[in-house]
Simulated assay, not measured.
Amino acid sequence: MLEKLKMDTKLFKEIDFSILFATISIVLFGIINIYSTTKLSYGSFFAKKQLIWFVGSLIVLYLILLWDYNLLENLVPIFYWISVVLLIYTKFNGATINGATGWIRIGGFSMQASEFAKLAIILMLAKRLQEMDLKINNLRNFMILTVYILIPVGLIVIQPDMGMTMVCFFIVLGIFFCAGLDMKIIGGGLFSLVLGIIVVWNSGVIQDYQKRRLTSFLNPEADELGSGLQLLQSMIGIGSGGFFGTGLNLMEGSSPSYVSQFVPESQTDFIFAVIGEHWGTMGAIVLLILYGILIYRFIVTARQAKDIFGSVICVGLSSYFLFGILQNIGMTIGLMPITGITLPLVSYGGSSLLTTVMSIALIMNIGMRKKKINF
């Protein structure tokens, strides 16, 4: 049994350690900032939970690396439909957090079903495009792919979780673009998206307070104590950090930071405000460099993958990382609408961290097996 858990030396040499180093560095950096912003009110509670999730995620990462990712292809439909069932379950029995009924509580932990659905969409598209030999402009093939997308995305929309809906859209857009979908179809899809947003916006699914939150970035001063509060306080905190930051305050008895006092959800959606205050522009640049290493290696792995299945997985996950980073940072500085999109690997959230590390493990697996290894 233990022999099966041992990685072959030849395979071990194929691991992309730059991805592993960047991933571990970003997560540990995130845990430090989570502790810094929550220690006054919660002590080490959030940081410890995140660390436990990370240790568990690393174990899952290692197990994923042991098995050829092609074996996963036959399990994709099972994973996909389980994620759909979880989305249906959360709609009727899930916990509501920040207006979205998208959480499943298990003991002291909460799991966000849409995080798994996001990965399931990528895997299903990769499997089907492999079977279709990338013939995405065939009408029948395109309609099949569209149905597989709309089932989970429709369930995410009615939670409602506009942040994850946006994530799924840009994942699909990245995959379809790289798969060679006709630009006229992409243009039509964007037009349909605009119409869909208008319909959902006026359907009553999105409540008024959620609408104000989404549009507050346009003029946060209009409601300084309401929908604009979080953004205004975030920008003040980031601005106070300057170029080198105010420094960490991890010692007992140290005064609380501005962001930890005045920015709600600073350990999750607005963790970048914590980074901007404590580490300044320099810290943000270092974080972006680490992200750049990850995305660059993801793209290289996509180009070198031995099959369509592996390449599409890498493209989908690269799209998620790129959009997630731009959206999360953008919303903390007033350039993007405020959504529930977390900063990948940094924000507090167990299910988000687990699925993101699983995704990275898949990319590493694909890179390890880009060529046949003879034993």
Rank of each mutant, 00 (worst) to 15 (best):
F243Q: 09
R297S: 09
Q210Y: 05
G253H: 11
W279P: 01
L294Y: 08
G292N: 06
G228F: 00
M282D: 03
Y291M: 09
T246K: 15
E224V: 12
A273G: 14
I293C: 07
L288Y: 08
L290M: 13
F243M: 14
N219Y: 05
S260T: 12
D208K: 03
S234W: 03
T215Y: 01
Q233M: 10
Y258G: 03
S266N: 13
G237C: 02
H278C: 11
E252Y: 11
S254Y: 08
Q267N: 14
L294H: 10
M251R: 15
V199T: 09
D208Y: 02
L214D: 02
T268V: 11
G242P: 09
L248W: 13
T215S: 04
H278D: 15
L232M: 13
L290H: 05
D223Y: 08
K211M: 04
S227C: 08
L290D: 13
K211I: 02
F217V: 06
T281S: 09
G245A: 15
M235F: 03
I293K: 01
S266T: 11
S266Y: 00
S234D: 02
P220M: 06
G280Q: 06
Q210F: 05
S255Q: 14
S254N: 12
G226I: 14
L287K: 04
S254F: 08
N202K: 13
E221L: 11
L248Q: 12
I238R: 05
S240H: 10
T281H: 01
A284S: 14
S234I: 03
Y209C: 01
V259P: 03
